[in-house]
């Protein structure tokens, strides 16, 4: 296809992506170098018949003018990245130089907002992905044994947790895990602890969020693995059986190798999606016990008058760097493949 025709065909897509994906990334990087203006204070003399007193208040007019002139705020360099709400360099060095053992270091670092979010994001990402894949694989094996008539309905039901709006799905589960909801109440009576609730127990919050993740991510692996199982050559399976392999050995040495390329794909997609975990935190109102990087950005932006653009942007940039690190192996492999083909 000549360059000109190619360009005409792809122009709208490229334009949309440049304007609304590349530019925002640039914008985030720029914004992260600024902090919002400090409040402009004025001192006014309040004189009454009984004497004068001076009062300090925020000069809203001057603030508005300042905001209109410099919407980005003040230039701050890397201060946004290093402050307490982000990488917290000073706090970390203080903790490292003065502490009572490893456990103390861990708890105190965990209490810093950024590290709290980072640890949950990573735990969610790297626990939910393999667990959901294992669940999906098990469902695929089980559905594959069903008679043909039942396969359709089973697939329909299995798709639901994946297709559901993430916020709606997490709300539905959150209401069931509410202390006066069906699962929350049952948990209380099972453990015999009448105060047990998501709000009171960080441990339970994490477990329920991870459960939600596996519930909603499992079906994707299921669909892909199920489709993969349909393409397993039956001859290979049968000859393995005739050679004396038992069911487990067939699964281990025939099915799993056959599905391995698919598993790489699923793992990649799920890692990318799970790294941006966000809606469940809002749905479960879990922010007291578990936050994520995406939630931190959301939280900075959601304030009505005092949106912290610089702070949100700094977290965003760090998140983007995280995504690139996650993607690096894939990009390197694609690059190698491409060079091999080109030669």
């Amino acid at each position: 296809m000549p360059h000109r025709t190619f360009f005409v065909f792809i122009f709208p897509s490229i334009l949309a992506m440049l304007l609304f994906i590349s530019l925002p990334i640039v914008s985030v990087v720029v914004q992260s170098l600024f902090v919002q203006h400090e409040a402009v204070l004025v001192t006014v003399e309040n004189c009454t018949p009984f004497g004068c007193e001076s009062q300090t208040r925020v000069d809203t007019e001057a603030m508005q003018k300042l905001r209109a002139e410099k919407p980005l705020g003040q230039f701050a360099g890397f201060a946004n990245y290093l402050n307490r709400n982000h990488l917290a360099v000073d706090e970390i060095s203080a903790i490292l130089s003065d502490n009572q053992g490893l456990g103390d270091v861990a708890t105190r670092i965990f209490n810093l907002p950024f590290y709290k979010a980072l640890s949950f994001t990573l735990v969610y990402c790297f626990l939910v992905t393999p667990l959901a894949m294992a669940l999906g694989f098990a469902i695929a094996l089980a559905v594959n044994t069903l008679p043909k008539l039942l396969k359709g309905p089973a697939i329909f039901v299995s798709l639901l947790p994946m297709i559901i709006t993430p916020l709606v799905g997490s709300l539905i589960l959150a209401w069931m895990f509410n202390p006066s909801g069906i699962l929350g109440a049952s948990l209380q009576s099972l453990t015999g602890d009448p105060t047990l609730s998501l709000r009171a127990s960080p441990m339970l919050t994490w477990i329920v969020l991870l459960l939600y993740g596996v519930w909603t991510n499992g079906p994707f692996s299921f669909v892909v693995f199920y489709a993969g199982l349909q393409t397993v050559p039956q001859d290979t399976v049968e000859s393995a059986r005739i050679d004396g392999a038992n069911r487990w050995e067939v699964t281990r040495y025939v099915l799993i190798p056959h599905l391995a390329p698919l598993a790489t794909f699923v793992a990649l997609v799920q890692l990318m999606d799970n790294f941006r975990v966000f809606e469940p935190i809002v749905g479960f109102s879990a922010e007291a016990n578990a936050t994520s990087l995406s939630w931190l950005v959301f939280n900075d932006l959601v304030g009505q008058d005092s949106q912290l653009f610089g702070s949100a942007a700094a977290t965003s940039v760090i998140t983007i760097v995280g995504v690139l690190i996650l993607l690096a192996p894939v990009l390197r492999r694609t690059w190698a493949d491409f060079n091999r083909k080109a030669v």
Partner: peptide
């Protein structure tokens, strides 16, 4: 272009949103 699209696909939406708002 396809590789760039793959990277864009991985960007968390909320980080892009923080770029749009201002």
């Amino acid at each position: 272009i396809l590789i760039a699209a793959l990277v864009f696909r991985a960007m968390p939406h909320i980080t892009l949103v923080s770029g749009y708002m201002l």
